[in-house]
Design a binder for these strands. Sequence first.
DNA 1: GGCAGCCATGGAAGAATCTTTCGTGAAATT
DNA 2: AATTTCACGAAAGATTCTTCCATGGCTGCC
Lengths: 154, 154
Amino acid sequence: MAARLDRIDLKMLRLLQKNGRLSNAELADQVGVSPATCHRRTQALFDEGFVAGVRAMVAPRKVGKGTLVMVGVVLDRSTPESFASFEQAAAKLKCVLDCHLVAGDFDYFLKIRVGDMEDFNRIHGDQLIALPGVRQTRTFFVMKEVVDNAALEF
Amino acid sequence: MAARLDRIDLKMLRLLQKNGRLSNAELADQVGVSPATCHRRTQALFDEGFVAGVRAMVAPRKVGKGTLVMVGVVLDRSTPESFASFEQAAAKLKCVLDCHLVAGDFDYFLKIRVGDMEDFNRIHGDQLIALPGVRQTRTFFVMKEVVDNAALEF
DNA sequence: GGCAGCCATGGAAGAATCTTTCGTGAAATT
DNA sequence: AATTTCACGAAAGATTCTTCCATGGCTGCC
């Protein structure tokens, strides 16, 4: 871990990860520094890339994306061009939350959010198997989200 | 999708999802309402659960969690008790970002962040195969994160 | 040991923002 | 058509942010 982070920086990162809307005054109070120092440190953490961004976590079910599906993908060929064009196309799909090149029985793993199974079936036929170079896909419907997108512990 | 959301609510959610630190004044300006109305609407979106929270996205590599691993898990037995105890234990692991009960060749899929392969190997031996009821695990090292934790599109 | 340079800190103050109250007007209902 | 309901924007006090400045501790070098 970057040794540039002292105890206060780590505490700030953990607090902001739990609640990105903490005001500077509250954060300063909780980590035990003045608002001025807190403001400078926070800005430094952002400037130096420790915080990639701050995001409101929209509740998936509330916006019609309550169904989660994991999909393993195998490509036709294992050429750099084949990988590149698949990645480029997959990254454009609105339903794709994760797309990872993996080692193992699959080439890629996708994490996808859709409205329901019917929605997924349509997307699978229209978009997934239509991705360039796809030989086969294996679908794992998520029946229960035990932990989804947990905060990073460090 | 909940029809309770009009065009302004949707725009606010999308903007806050991209930048959770948008000030109320900026948000109001971008969606074309007064700060007062924007404030009321934002608060309502939070109160009604459309926004589950706001989170600073800490850069994994910056805090020593640069390696991503997907793990498929098969349990010994398919009893409710077996599932429950596995879930309870898995949810406590600090490295687990996702833990999903799935339909298919695996019982669970885990998404895990660690420092490096050596770190994973240790965790695999100490924590993963030690989870209650685990018959076998299949590890998929992520070689390239094409899309990780993309914002929800709705 | 002493001294100079460097850096982070906290106080303070102006500027900006938030948050609530109030009155208005539009839309739906009776 | 009257009434109720609802959301809206303007305004203002309170809060917060953001920066400047002086202080104090730490390091490195006489």
